[in-house]
Write a protein that binds this DNA or RNA. Structure first.
Lengths: 209, 209
DNA sequence: AGCGTTGTTAATAGACTTATTAAACAACTC
DNA sequence: GAGTTGTTTAATAAGTCTATTAACAACGCT
């Protein structure tokens, strides 16, 4: 029992550090956070961070990998073939948007750390595992719709970029908007909900033949 | 004459430092750059950076202010009333896109430094000086078009966000795309040119009633 | 009870940062 | 050519950061 408690504390500590690191890295990026700060957040000694993860870069990599996987996994959606293409598309757009809402700092985090050249291998692999599959599937769907004259001619790549662009931006620009427009939390949430619908409208409209 | 030469060298050095700082900050952000690195890039002693700009934060602020102003100024476009709304809109979209092409690191830089809470006052002021004017003008134009039934109902705010979202994203995601798609410079430029047209198509299509 | 294992801490080495200071230097004035 | 002024450098203080090490604590096992 006590052993278990101890063990829980142990695992708890290792994970506590990871979670604290996650939060801080998401907020301020790799360079903006020190292992000392992580330790302080957890409430443990700074050496402990290194005891479990050896290096800061190592710890960061674990966080980054998780977040990147999540970001990519957002697009893996169960296809329901009883729905029309448009209906499926709306679901995709909305669920992508909702996933971002749950982790609003994620886009900035990933984009920024990519700029910093950190761990480009992970990035490349992760995307290469997912991107082609995603694009090909969408391409097939699009082909049918285009040939049937239900939507205009557009590549899966462009459509995907359009959706991601429109969905991500609100979360990237959120801090600016808060400052500039002086929105409180409630207003901000309303605005975000509004944007979700606007993205759907914009995409659907833009696809008409 | 010699005095002038001396003065030029002086200004030259002061400006050289500013330009070097500009490049480095754009590339790596505030935390990613040291005054030592800036000095190394200029080829001068590190103390000289402090001689001219006292603190790193001070130097950064000068850079940031310039860049922010540029980013906002992008939208100030001469209106040609002999053109239709659609023609004017296309010009706006394209010139915004082209301006970003000239400084592809700018969006990431600004968004990231805003995340870091650095100099939020400058940001707020700069945007507050420009944003309302921009929005109001566009709102008026839109009203006419909407009432005439030439475009669907949309707010100036949403349209602006849509355009900015679509235009900015390629530059934010450029590093990823280079890695993942393995594009060389020429292919990348072609892709970017293609995206410019695609953004125009998407926006115009999305505005149809 | 004592030994080994694991978790945790304090202390610290070593590298790097920002910022300051004092001295060297260059260019020019009178 | 002595002095003035502004520029540049070397040296360094003071601090922070990462990572390591050695000591200590708590427990499990035999």
């Amino acid at each position: 029992m006590k052993g278990q408690e101890k063990n829980n504390q142990k695992d708890g500590m290792e994970l506590s550090i990871l979670y604290a690191a996650e939060e801080l890295f998401l907020e301020k990026g790799f360079n903006g956070v020190s292992t000392t700060e992580i330790a302080a957040k957890v409430g443990c000694n700074q050496a402990l961070v290194h005891y479990y993860y050896r290096t800061k870069a190592n710890l960061f990599q674990k966080v980054f990998e998780n977040k990147l996987k999540y970001m990519v996994s957002i697009f893996e959606i169960i296809e329901d073939n009883s729905l029309t293409f448009e209906e499926r598309l709306v679901i995709k757009i909305k669920s992508h948007f909702d996933a971002l809402s749950k982790e609003p700092l994620l886009p900035m985090f990933v984009l920024n750390e990519i700029r910093n050249n950190s761990s480009t291998d992970i990035i490349r692999e992760t995307f290469r595992q997912q991107a082609p599959n995603l694009i090909n599937k969408l391409e097939e769907e699009l082909k049918i719709e285009i040939e049937a004259g239900r939507i205009r001619n557009i590549s899966a790549f462009d459509l995907l970029i359009n959706i991601i662009s429109l969905n991500i931006f609100v979360f990237l620009a959120r801090p600016i908007m808060e400052y500039v427009l002086g929105l409180d939390e409630e207003m901000m949430n309303k605005m975000i909900e509004h944007r979700k619908q606007e993205v759907v409208n914009t995409i659907l409209n833009s696809l008409r033949p």
